[in-house]
Design a protein around this nucleic acid. Sequence first.
RNA 1: GGACAUGUGGCGUAACUUGGAUAGCGCAUCGGCUUGCGGAGCCGAGGGUUGCGGGUUCAAAUCCCGCCAUGUCCGCCA
Length: 623
Amino acid sequence: MANIFKEEFENLILHSIKKQYGNIEVPELKYSIDIVFGKDWDISSSIALKLSKVLKKSPKMIAEEVVKNIKSSKFFSEITTVNGYINAKLSVTELSNFVLKEVSSQKEKYGSSDLGKGKLVLLEYPSVNPNKPWHIGHLRNPLLGDSLSNILNFCSYTTNRLDYIEDLGLQMAEILWGKKNLDWKLTDKKYDQFLGEKYVEINNRIKEDEEAKKEITHILKKMEDTSSKEAREIREIAENSVKAQYETAFKYLLYHDLLIWESDILSEKLLEKSLELLKKNSLVYIEEEGKLKGCTVLKTSLSSKTEEENKKVLLRSNGVPTYLGKDIALHMWKLGIIKIHFKSKEFISQPDGSKVITTFNTGKVLNFTGADIAINIIGSAQNEPQTVLKNTLEVIDPKKAKNLIHVSYGELSLKEGKISGRSGTWLGNERNYTADDLFKFTVERAKEIILSSDKLSPNINPDEVSKKIAISAIKFDLLKIDPITKITFDWDKALDFNSNSGPYCMYMYARTCRIIEKSKEIIKSAKLSDKDISYAERDYGFELLKLLSLCSDRVEKAATEYKPNVIAEYLLEISALFGKFYEHNSVLKGGDATNLRLAIVSSVKQTLYNMLMLLGIEPLSSM
RNA sequence: GGACAUGUGGCGUAACUUGGAUAGCGCAUCGGCUUGCGGAGCCGAGGGUUGCGGGUUCAAAUCCCGCCAUGUCCGCCA
């Protein structure tokens, strides 16, 4: 739902332009209009500047003519022109009345949109190999995925959160080799941590061991037969590993709906069907000579590539499928190009009460025939493979391929370089660069701050509160930045809850809660009257309401651009303005304006709550 | 070598899709505000040729071209 004041302003201007200049095209009108802050006016359009060329007149003259012909409206006053801009003041009472009533009637739906009504979105994240704990670099992925799922959901999309588990790849074959050739006694470490450390050890061992590498290739081949002993063994390891990884996810309030296993893609013959379809479209063939002799090869057509580079192996010469081969198959299923009915069972119960379903070789048929949109949250390192995937699907079903979206994000690194699971740079001395340790140390830091506060409320539980503060700090930090921007992780920065932070927004939310709570003794009437509204002035309260009126605009922007940082920015704007508001306007001792100001606080509270939830942050009423 | 992405005060970032008024915010630095609804706060100061060069335009951080720098990818890895 767009901002009605902007819409109304647009209509008035359009009407005036048509009246003055006849039926000319005004294509950019919508984008020329902005609600502005800290100026003598509230809303502005630069359309006269844009029309200058078309009409061959000076912007100033156009603006004046448009203003002269503009119809009066109860929403606006003092419609004027400055330097070719058309500016107006918003009616303080109309806007206040409208926004306050909208928020109080829509409550936790305030800011939502019907953009995606009736559409099913499949979001895949984070698809971390099940042989290591999530490290800090991995964490950015599910935070983006979870937040985008929330945002799309808020825009009326039905969302399904999918995790793809690669239990048949090289990395798992290496784990199995390690289990047979290394000392493999389980410790009291978390299982994914144990595997991750072993994986580093394995890599050091096999680096120059040709014999071991051969054995691993052999294991890999055996695993492809999903009924083999090896496949069953590795599936069990992987299931336990995923369960351990999900313990981490749950700390961060990250949940999923469905797990798709690589092994099930093979056993359900999805890969075969996909190869058939590719063959039918002349996209694959068996290479008969050269270094790829015996491989089933996909012909791609990236113009920047040589003919050789445009060959992608889908089946190795020994018949074992590559990652890309399986990935193409998976995406044909996701988009309903191939309909396969996986069997499924319950995998795990999540702390929010929901259950994760997993594909399996036996069980209930999974009723799924394709999503309207498939979103992959994948690091920018995989931009090219994702392009290959999309281009390939485009040949087969252009319409559906269009709905495959790669949300590409900049990988997180350390000051000293990349985080690598294989070489073990995620292991530190005192602290590992894992999502578990990040959580642990951030919680500690939060608790330290809570306990050192002399305003500590006796009612709060420092353990519970510090966890939620930590979540807000970590999530906000990683989500406030445009996904495409690379991040260099730094412990000092991570543990510094500065002003542009989750805790800052949480603090402002807590303040709104406290004011509302205290108001219960003095509140005059629960219902806001016209008289109450009449005390509205052009002050910080009004600026706040202007800002709140933009809520669904911002949400839709975040949804259509797949950018949760739009929401984080918005939260900071509201928080900062609210900080000024309560510093400059007493709410509880606001005289005649008390009821109005309380209503403003209440609206801010609701909006902060709704936006924090979109980032996967649960607000606290005191902290 | 080719392709893609990125480059904004000392540091981190917003605005780039849709060109528009004084490039917004935080950290750090310096100064001020608490008998007051919670100081994780508020007020103020200094700090910018938006990587460089050209072009388009009444107007460029934004669009186009060239260059430079950084990162990533280009494997019978995933």
